[in-house]
Write a protein that binds this DNA or RNA. Structure first.
Lengths: 267, 267
DNA sequence: ACAAAAGTGTTGCTCTTACACCCATGC
DNA sequence: GCATGGGTGTAAGAGCAACACTTTTGT
């Protein structure tokens, strides 16, 4: 009896058990086996229990928007949620988030920053899943691409008229909004939401939308121009039914310099 | 041959495989089996591949300090690192961080906030582990308790003279410092580093340390007193070799009100 | 008395705020 | 010519930085 016990220990307690688990996982992967709360995709091995969720912000016609996807399967079928995905073994979590966004929008140079991890034990109904929240800023110029790519399942929503969201995605969205409001006052990341060429008032409306405040036009102009972050590209608006405004673009170099020194926007 | 294949599918592809994995895990748990990068402790089931790491700040004799622990086992034996731990299945990640801190310091009401997740694929040498960073602020009054509890393995270090840290803990520490510098200008969380009663100059020195700047004494007084956050408790310093300073404490009520409205400290 | 830190006063300057007003363009 | 948004001017006042100065206490 004693001999049997130590025999079991030797085999089960040793590395054979690791090999067995790996074999089983490999089999499940090769079959595309999907269990509740777990997801194996052929060829890639995902870390269980950790996901990525992205809050993708856009700015269109003077309004802030968020990109949501419709869930096709499971309990939350036909409900809207944040685009998300899994983390593969060889990827950093930032790279995972980039991949999720690329798959969704076809874009590669999106502004992306991590929010934080969300890990209430019951946030995901089927099993314990911790998610790492990200937020991204997408230029309105690139809207077309995003829409064309996944038109049927992905859609832009006004932030002031969001549908009900699955799981704790409402909380993640609110954290993203909060973070954006903070960051926008420490660095000029708002540029990532505007086209290459923009007017000063478009910029001001962007800040008004993000921060949910009213601003004074003349004062905003002066304050922003004083920072030397904007370049007058010598062009003007066309086909507008009022005096054409100067178009500006954003001086990358000055931004980099200021960012290193650290600076603050107060509005 | 076809029959054999479908037989395997039936059993391996079905829920039996889940039961098998569970059985193996249970056996490993019951044996206290520890593999590289995995850790099972009897009775509790931890989520693999996700850990907690805490940057614990203190303020003592006018200097910022960080609590580090010495690693007792493995490759990183005798090196210093951030205190950390695992997340149990039933706990929120915030609760896990609280537990880690309680086990380390014996304190329960510590100021604690999540930083972000760190997930470079090779940040942990043995296996892929994502860690969720936290930072905590501990009052100097409570130092004694912390020191007594784990004197041999835990020690306070001046932030300006940290030893080499294991893995990516240096990066986590720097993120914590950055976050603290940001947060301290948006909310008066610095109070969590000071004793109940403190002088205005102690408060100023705290800000100077955290933000790494020099400030003007008279101007700091006026600015801070104007916020109405401090309560003059009518006491004075004792046994000091110069004019005794008034002692203040922090008005919780005003803080709560201001926090809801949102406010900013500029220094 | 003097060292050392507490605490007050003052002044010039910058930045902010609020609002009045002129400019260009399409209908 | 008038509506719409673009853009400049200005004046009052708040806030801030810098530094000189007075007060209190222990040795």
């Amino acid at each position: 009896m004693e001999i049997l016990k130590s025999w079991i220990d030797l085999f089960l307690g040793g590395f054979l058990i690791e090999i067995l688990i790996f074999t089983i996982k490999f089999y499940k992967m090769s079959k595309g086996f999907i269990a509740e709360g777990e997801k194996y995709i052929q060829e890639e091995n995902f870390i269980e229990a950790v996901t990525i969720d992205c809050v993708v912000f856009g700015f269109n016609e003077g309004k802030m928007e968020v990109l949501l996807v419709k869930h096709a399967e499971g309990i939350s079928k036909d409900k809207w949620g944040l685009p998300g995905g899994w983390i593969t073994e060889k990827e950093s979590i930032d790279d995972s988030a980039k991949r999720v966004l690329r798959d969704l929008t076809g874009l590669d140079n999106i502004f992306l920053e991590q929010l934080q991890a969300f890990g209430e034990p019951n946030r995901f109904p089927a099993s314990r899943v911790i998610t790492i929240g990200y937020y991204a800023l997408v230029k309105s110029e690139d809207y077309e691409i995003a829409a064309g790519f996944t038109a049927s399942e992905a859609k832009w929503f006004l932030v002031e008229a969001l549908p009900e969201l699955i799981y704790d995605h409402k909380m993640i969205f609110e954290a993203a909004q909060e973070k954006l409001r903070n960051r926008v006052r420490q660095a000029p990341i708002g540029f990532n939401l505007l086209p290459e060429k923009f007017t000063l008032l478009e910029l001001m409306h962007l800040y008004e939308e993000i921060l949910d405040v009213k601003m004074d036009k003349p004062n905003f102009r002066r304050k922003f121009l004083k920072m030397k972050l904007l370049v007058d590209i010598g062009e003007k608006q066309k086909d507008v039914s009022h005096r054409a405004a100067k178009l500006y673009s954003f001086d990358e170099e000055v931004y980099q310099k200021l960012t290193k020194k650290g600076f603050t926007f107060e509005f």
